[in-house]
Computed example of a mutant assay.
Amino acid sequence: MKLTGNTIFIPGATSGIGLGLALRLADAGNMVIVAGRRSEKLADIAAEHPGIQAVRLDVSDPDDISRVAADVQQRFPDTNVLITMAGIMEAEDLHTADFLATAERAVTTNLLGTLRLVGAFTEFLQSKPDATIVTVSSGLAFVPLVPTATYSATKAAIHSFTESLRFQLADTSVGVLELVPPAVQTDLMPGQAEADWAMPLTDFLDEVVRLLPDATDEILVERVGFLRHAEARGTYSDTLVQLASTVH
């Protein structure tokens, strides 16, 4: 993916990795459109960063995805990059069926939200000579975090879906990348923004921006390697136990 001269739509970019990446990409010379559920946060971003456009979008609502996708494609016809950043992460206790409400929220937002966004943009992006879809999975797609079982499962599904999407779109102008973050110091989970087991956000963004121009499939910062390659290295079981005992 070229690092400048794009028009980029990023649902889920009102905080954390999404907002950080949006700001880096805007500074690199791209038109960036961010989307999220919180109108007040969107207004703040647009006011503080005049070059960034903001639209309200609830990715858990399929009708909202259809409406916003049509609006973005009409108002920003040069859009050639979609980054499906929106996601939620909540702990679950699987001892009873009480976890199902949490699990359903994760599936609706993380998995169905991504699939619906891709569905809303794939045909449109194929009309562009140089387009990219970037999905966002997680190191937990490869070794799950036990307390967030469904989050981990949705990210594993995103990884698998992205592999198929890349192969199916290989005969088009649309490249497909998968961003695979490790734990990063954001507010995704309580206490994570200050946790020493999470990667500083600035360091993560620095490495992603450096890797992005040459990426052809997965965008892997060095710190996610112990998760991404655990099975191949024969360390899967130990890593699973380590995560379960370290991250609370």
Rank of each mutant, 00 (worst) to 15 (best):
L179W: 13
R24D: 11
D196W: 07
D93W: 02
A103W: 00
I133F: 11
P182K: 02
F167C: 14
V107G: 00
I52F: 08
A131Y: 11
V68S: 04
I10C: 05
Q126E: 14
P147W: 05
T79P: 08
L23A: 08
L82W: 07
A156H: 08
M89V: 09
L227T: 06
L112P: 05
F9R: 07
S15F: 04
F167L: 15
V146L: 12
M1A: 15
E207H: 03
L82E: 09
A153I: 02
E222Y: 02
N110E: 09
L205H: 01
F142W: 03
V72H: 08
D203R: 09
P190C: 06
A183C: 09
E123W: 10
A97K: 00
L57M: 12
D187S: 12
G20F: 00
R67L: 13
G5A: 07
F142I: 04
F99S: 03
D78M: 09
D217P: 05
W197C: 02
T79D: 03
R233M: 11
L3K: 11
V118G: 07
L188R: 00
L117C: 13
R24H: 11
R116A: 04
T96A: 01
E90M: 01
A91K: 13
T239R: 09
V81I: 14
S152F: 03
A232F: 09
T216W: 00
R38G: 07
E104S: 06
A195E: 02
D93M: 05
T7D: 08
R210Q: 14
G87H: 01
M1P: 12
L165R: 09
D44V: 15
V32F: 01
S15T: 11
D217N: 14
D171A: 15
S137F: 01
A70L: 14
S160M: 09
L201R: 06
V81E: 13
A183E: 10
V209T: 11
L125F: 14
T202L: 08
V34L: 06
A232C: 04
G5S: 07
V221F: 08
Q74F: 14
T79R: 05
L125I: 12
A35N: 07
F204A: 06
S66P: 07
F76S: 10
S164M: 15
Q192G: 02
N6G: 12
T102Y: 00
F142H: 12
F161C: 10
L25W: 12
A230N: 01
E104C: 01
Q192T: 10
V209L: 13
F99A: 02
A22F: 05
S164D: 14
D93S: 11
R223P: 00
G119E: 14
G36A: 06
V81T: 15
G87L: 00
T202C: 01
R24Y: 04
H248N: 14
D64L: 08
Q192S: 03
R116K: 05
L220S: 13
D203A: 14
G139H: 06
E207Y: 01
V32G: 04
R75V: 13
I83E: 12
T108L: 07
Q73E: 11
T114D: 05
K41R: 15
V174D: 10
R228D: 07
N30M: 10
S160L: 09
F204W: 01
T235P: 12
M189G: 00
A26H: 10
A131C: 02
M1T: 13
T202Y: 00
